[in-house]
Amino acid sequence: METNSGQVQPIDILLVEDNPGDVRLTREALRDGKLLNRLSTVTDGQQAIAFLRKQGSYAQAIRPDLILLDLNLPRKDGREVLAEIKADPDLRIIPVIVLTSSQAEQDILKSYNMHANCYVTKPVDLVKFVDAVKAVEDFWVHIVKLPPRL
Protein backbone atom coordinates (compact mmCIF):
# COMPACT_ATOMS: atom_id res chain seq x y z
CA MET A 1 0.00 0.00 0.00
CA GLU A 2 1.29 3.31 -0.90
CA THR A 3 1.45 5.96 1.69
CA ASN A 4 1.16 9.58 0.89
CA SER A 5 4.95 9.68 0.51
CA GLY A 6 4.63 7.12 -2.29
CA GLN A 7 6.18 4.24 -0.30
CA VAL A 8 4.54 0.90 -0.56
CA GLN A 9 3.58 -0.43 2.84
CA PRO A 10 3.55 -4.11 3.60
CA ILE A 11 0.08 -5.59 3.90
CA ASP A 12 -1.41 -8.29 6.11
CA ILE A 13 -2.45 -11.47 4.36
CA LEU A 14 -4.45 -14.33 5.90
CA LEU A 15 -3.78 -17.69 4.27
CA VAL A 16 -6.45 -20.30 4.94
CA GLU A 17 -4.77 -23.53 3.91
CA ASP A 18 -4.67 -26.98 5.53
CA ASN A 19 -1.75 -28.34 3.50
CA PRO A 20 1.53 -27.36 5.20
CA GLY A 21 3.37 -27.91 1.91
CA ASP A 22 1.20 -25.32 0.20
CA VAL A 23 1.61 -22.99 3.17
CA ARG A 24 5.36 -23.26 2.78
CA LEU A 25 5.28 -22.86 -1.00
CA THR A 26 3.09 -19.79 -0.68
CA ARG A 27 5.38 -18.41 1.96
CA GLU A 28 8.40 -19.11 -0.29
CA ALA A 29 6.73 -17.44 -3.22
CA LEU A 30 5.86 -14.37 -1.16
CA ARG A 31 9.33 -14.28 0.39
CA ASP A 32 10.81 -13.56 -3.00
CA GLY A 33 8.56 -10.50 -3.21
CA LYS A 34 9.71 -6.96 -2.84
CA LEU A 35 7.90 -6.47 0.45
CA LEU A 36 7.87 -8.46 3.61
CA ASN A 37 4.15 -8.83 3.76
CA ARG A 38 2.85 -10.25 6.97
CA LEU A 39 1.43 -13.66 6.39
CA SER A 40 -0.84 -15.29 8.98
CA THR A 41 -1.98 -18.86 8.54
CA VAL A 42 -4.94 -20.86 9.77
CA THR A 43 -5.58 -24.47 8.74
CA ASP A 44 -9.35 -24.88 8.79
CA GLY A 45 -12.54 -22.91 8.19
CA GLN A 46 -13.52 -22.57 11.82
CA GLN A 47 -10.17 -21.06 12.66
CA ALA A 48 -10.51 -18.69 9.74
CA ILE A 49 -13.82 -17.30 10.99
CA ALA A 50 -12.53 -17.11 14.58
CA PHE A 51 -9.44 -15.27 13.32
CA LEU A 52 -11.47 -12.75 11.33
CA ARG A 53 -13.88 -12.14 14.21
CA LYS A 54 -11.04 -12.08 16.76
CA GLN A 55 -12.67 -14.80 18.78
CA GLY A 56 -11.05 -17.05 21.37
CA SER A 57 -7.33 -17.38 20.99
CA TYR A 58 -7.47 -14.97 18.04
CA ALA A 59 -8.48 -11.94 20.16
CA GLN A 60 -5.22 -10.28 19.20
CA ALA A 61 -5.45 -11.19 15.53
CA ILE A 62 -4.76 -8.48 12.98
CA ARG A 63 -7.50 -7.77 10.51
CA PRO A 64 -6.07 -8.86 7.15
CA ASP A 65 -6.00 -6.71 3.99
CA LEU A 66 -6.34 -9.78 1.78
CA ILE A 67 -7.51 -13.36 2.26
CA LEU A 68 -6.09 -16.33 0.34
CA LEU A 69 -8.70 -19.08 0.75
CA ASP A 70 -8.47 -22.74 -0.11
CA LEU A 71 -11.80 -24.43 -0.78
CA ASN A 72 -11.24 -27.92 0.56
CA LEU A 73 -10.74 -27.46 4.28
CA PRO A 74 -11.44 -29.63 7.31
CA ARG A 75 -14.25 -28.84 9.75
CA LYS A 76 -15.58 -25.82 7.90
CA ASP A 77 -15.40 -25.83 4.13
CA GLY A 78 -13.82 -22.91 2.23
CA ARG A 79 -17.14 -22.31 0.47
CA GLU A 80 -18.90 -21.85 3.82
CA VAL A 81 -16.12 -19.54 5.00
CA LEU A 82 -16.54 -17.46 1.83
CA ALA A 83 -20.32 -17.31 2.32
CA GLU A 84 -19.93 -16.17 5.92
CA ILE A 85 -17.37 -13.50 5.07
CA LYS A 86 -19.51 -12.08 2.27
CA ALA A 87 -22.62 -12.14 4.44
CA ASP A 88 -20.84 -10.19 7.17
CA PRO A 89 -21.13 -6.39 6.62
CA ASP A 90 -17.92 -5.87 8.54
CA LEU A 91 -15.84 -8.50 6.71
CA ARG A 92 -17.19 -8.48 3.18
CA ILE A 93 -15.07 -5.53 2.21
CA ILE A 94 -11.91 -7.66 2.49
CA PRO A 95 -10.90 -9.07 -0.91
CA VAL A 96 -10.96 -12.87 -0.95
CA ILE A 97 -8.79 -14.72 -3.45
CA VAL A 98 -9.83 -18.33 -3.83
CA LEU A 99 -6.61 -20.28 -4.24
CA THR A 100 -7.41 -23.90 -4.80
CA SER A 101 -6.48 -27.03 -6.75
CA SER A 102 -10.07 -27.41 -7.91
CA GLN A 103 -10.68 -26.68 -11.56
CA ALA A 104 -14.34 -27.58 -11.35
CA GLU A 105 -16.56 -25.15 -13.22
CA GLN A 106 -19.08 -25.61 -10.45
CA ASP A 107 -16.60 -24.36 -7.83
CA ILE A 108 -15.53 -21.42 -9.96
CA LEU A 109 -19.09 -20.34 -10.66
CA LYS A 110 -20.18 -20.85 -7.08
CA SER A 111 -17.23 -18.87 -5.76
CA TYR A 112 -17.94 -15.87 -7.98
CA ASN A 113 -21.62 -16.15 -7.13
CA MET A 114 -20.62 -15.79 -3.51
CA HIS A 115 -18.62 -12.68 -4.42
CA ALA A 116 -15.13 -14.10 -4.37
CA ASN A 117 -12.86 -11.36 -5.69
CA CYS A 118 -10.94 -13.74 -7.88
CA TYR A 119 -10.42 -17.43 -8.42
CA VAL A 120 -6.98 -18.92 -8.97
CA THR A 121 -6.23 -22.56 -9.60
CA LYS A 122 -2.97 -23.67 -8.04
CA PRO A 123 -0.61 -24.49 -10.89
CA VAL A 124 0.82 -27.98 -10.63
CA ASP A 125 4.28 -26.83 -11.62
CA LEU A 126 6.40 -25.12 -8.96
CA VAL A 127 7.61 -22.34 -11.18
CA LYS A 128 4.11 -21.62 -12.38
CA PHE A 129 2.82 -21.78 -8.82
CA VAL A 130 5.36 -19.28 -7.64
CA ASP A 131 4.59 -17.10 -10.65
CA ALA A 132 0.87 -17.26 -9.86
CA VAL A 133 1.32 -16.33 -6.22
CA LYS A 134 3.66 -13.51 -7.20
CA ALA A 135 1.18 -12.29 -9.79
CA VAL A 136 -1.57 -12.31 -7.20
CA GLU A 137 0.63 -10.44 -4.78
CA ASP A 138 1.78 -7.99 -7.41
CA PHE A 139 -1.74 -7.28 -8.56
CA TRP A 140 -3.39 -6.94 -5.17
CA VAL A 141 -0.54 -5.25 -3.40
CA HIS A 142 0.91 -3.04 -6.10
CA ILE A 143 -1.77 -2.44 -8.68
CA VAL A 144 -5.07 -2.60 -6.89
CA LYS A 145 -6.20 0.10 -4.52
CA LEU A 146 -7.41 -1.77 -1.47
CA PRO A 147 -10.09 -0.32 0.71
CA PRO A 148 -8.77 1.86 3.54
CA ARG A 149 -8.11 0.15 6.85
CA LEU A 150 -10.85 0.64 9.33
Binding site: G21, L25, E28, D125, L126, F129
Partner: peptide, 17 residues
Protein backbone atom coordinates in the same frame (compact mmCIF):
# COMPACT_ATOMS: atom_id res chain seq x y z
CA UNK B 1 -3.12 -37.89 -6.68
CA UNK B 2 -2.48 -34.38 -7.93
CA UNK B 3 -2.14 -32.90 -4.45
CA UNK B 4 0.66 -35.06 -3.03
CA UNK B 5 2.24 -35.22 -6.44
CA UNK B 6 2.30 -31.45 -6.61
CA UNK B 7 4.10 -31.47 -3.30
CA UNK B 8 6.73 -33.97 -4.48
CA UNK B 9 7.24 -32.13 -7.75
CA UNK B 10 7.27 -28.67 -6.19
CA UNK B 11 9.71 -29.46 -3.42
CA UNK B 12 12.08 -31.49 -5.59
CA UNK B 13 12.08 -28.50 -7.95
CA UNK B 14 12.62 -26.15 -5.05
CA UNK B 15 15.43 -28.42 -3.89
CA UNK B 16 16.98 -28.33 -7.32
CA UNK B 17 16.65 -24.54 -7.55
Amino acid sequence: LQEPLRMVASFTQLLAQ
